[in-house]
Design a protein around this nucleic acid. Structure first.
Lengths: 356, 356
DNA sequence: CTGAAAGCGCTTACAG
DNA sequence: CTGAAAGCGCTTACAG
């Protein structure tokens, strides 16, 4: 074959897709009938349906989702706005959303909020809003919190938030994990092992103000009458934990450390190891999240398990309820964390002496 | 306000968005002129542009991306088809794609291939094809390989493949990491430390046949004249490594283990620890990927660093070149892995004796 | 059960 | 520099 192919589009590599009109011609019916067939409309004569289906198959017809969305107004799509897609918690929430979305034949898009800069956030929110469908914003950090607040009022949106008190999204639906309770439990666990107090290495918080985890930790200390050390501000990732750990290792008084997540805890443990302090012999360490590898570290990590994928599924279910009249809108779901005690936390060693 | 709001859509919560016609009316121009303004067309009188911009601002106009896509035929969207979104390598590739896509104002969608079942794969591919735009398929595993093969011929697609020899995508563009070379280097590293041979714990492979990593490992053994033990088939994740490690720990001859990824290596190390074998004292262990925490484990993990985000960026660049005539289509890029020797690998201890 | 019309919100020529 | 027409590929009433 030579010559210009009228089926090529501008970029010259994609043949114009076959439309319902092409199918209609091939099947000898009107294109409305084709529409009925692909929409499983009941009132189509079986023999007609057969012919149309055969034509669809032969021509390799695929319904154009863009045209469907434009004509019908329904888009069956959700865009997830998040500051990160790789950290365990974020990635797991995204996974949960995707699972639930796939089960309902929703397409899922992602938009990453690279900075908390107002203009950058606004740009990302606009891009996400441009994509038709609903929005889920993971508002665990400053970019996410700002994005949730910046979502236009007329857009269906669900927030995944750190704490439900005065959620930044106003009266919009949200899902959350009870981080305050989780930190409270973890701190009580460490105190119950005889430690005089518990130090805290914080993850970058959702706000300037105190995070839910910090609040829970503080509450447990207060109730126990334990002194409240200054929280160490950690960065994301093991490197941040390592830096914080080196700092804490200088203080021989430190015997228990709660970390904002498992990656931080892993870095802290490494720092303690490097400075010759045994875990849990000299210092007990606990994390947050129960990442897949945490059970296989040496020492295995005491942590608080969070059901992030379940949280993601809930977020989608909520959005789905908002988008489709049929699906009921559930109340704001909460994921209840579960303490998992492992090797990295142990009884405080009697002051002064090393065991034989 | 009471009564029915004609601006509400079926679901009753979203006001019909303002269109270019609304803007045109408000600005006292035709809607074509509005189209010119939002497309930065040069031939618009400055004063007209001002008025239109003002109307856009006042009415809160947002251009409907669906209509844009349908009318123009360009969609500026990419869908990533992958078996997984959370494992380090996959998540990092996705991150790289997203970064590059965002820089070009492309929307990114994800579709997860939950099983290698033909029908399930076909369904996911169809869904991805329905979303307009290009496709990137991560073909590191059976579902991905099958998906890449099932992509309709008329769709712009880039494959992220394990090995470039007879890629499953035929003559389609692809990107790859040189896994064979990576495994070769890692194996040579372990052999150079005096180990008689190197055992291998494999990740689930892309095919029934031998993976590139297995090939590289085997090649290094052969060149060195080392005996070739049977590879241990691992599952994904630390649990798989742990199971494999327990098995290998039973054989006192085992002094060096190469693992298909860092998570597997972490599990193997844990298993060796549990069975009283020191790393690297008794057994050297190396992984693949250089995950963020690998440098902070104790012992820190010898591994092969792979530039997955760079690979993702390359994949997008390639697709971008295919989609837009202006962007040049680069040749199949390869990411060159880099060996990172850390604490988990060491010289083989002289046979028979434990050091004092 | 099936067909002809109008329209979703835009863009792309075509006029002037 | 700006406007009127046609059309992207579908769906949704409206006819019959």
């Amino acid at each position: 074959m030579t010559g210009h192919n009228p089926g090529m589009n501008v970029t010259g590599h994609t043949r114009r897709s076959v439309s319902i009109r092409d199918v209609a011609t091939a099947a000898g019916v009107s294109y409305q009938t084709v529409s009925r067939v692909i929409n499983d409309h009941p009132s189509v004569k079986p023999s007609t349906r057969e012919r149309v289906l055969a034509a669809i198959d032969e021509l390799g017809f695929r319904r154009n989702a863009t045209a469907l969305a434009l004509a019908s107004g329904r888009s069956r799509a959700v865009t997830v706005l998040t500051a990160n897609t790789t950290h365990y918690g974020y990635a797991s929430i995204l996974q949960g959303i995707e699972e639930a979305a796939r089960a309902e034949s929703y397409a899922v898009g992602i938009g990453v909020l690279e900075s908390a800069d107002e203009a950058a956030v606004a740009t990302e929110v606009r891009r996400a809003a441009d994509a038709s469908g609903g929005l889920i914003v993971i508002a665990y950090d400053p970019p996410g919190v700002k994005a949730l607040a910046a979502v236009p009022a007329d857009l269906p949106v669900v927030g995944v938030v750190e704490t439900p008190t005065s959620p930044p999204g106003g009266d919009r639906p949200w899902v959350w994990t009870d981080d305050r309770e989780a930190a409270y439990e973890a701190t009580r666990h460490l105190l119950s092992l005889g430690h005089e107090t518990v130090h805290y290495v914080a993850i970058p918080s959702s706000t300037r103000r105190t995070s839910a985890r910090t609040t829970g930790w503080r509450q447990a200390l207060k109730e126990a009458g334990a002194p409240e050390p200054r929280p160490v501000q950690g960065r994301w990732g093991p490197a941040g934990g390592h830096a914080a750990g080196l700092k804490l290792a200088q203080d021989p008084q430190v015997t228990a450390i709660l970390c904002g997540n498992d990656d931080l805890a892993l870095g802290v443990i490494r720092a303690l190891h490097e400075t010759g302090r045994a875990v849990p012999g000299d210092v007990s360490v606990a994390g947050f999240d129960d990442a897949p590898h945490s059970a296989y570290l040496t020492p295995s990590l005491t942590t608080v398990r969070m059901d992030f994928t379940g949280l993601g599924r809930s977020a989608f279910a909520l959005l789905h309820g908002v988008l489709e009249e049929s699906a009921p809108v559930a109340p704001h779901p909460v994921s209840v964390p579960e303490l998992v005690a492992r090797e990295s936390s142990g009884r405080r060693r009697p002051a002064g002496g090393r065991p034989a």
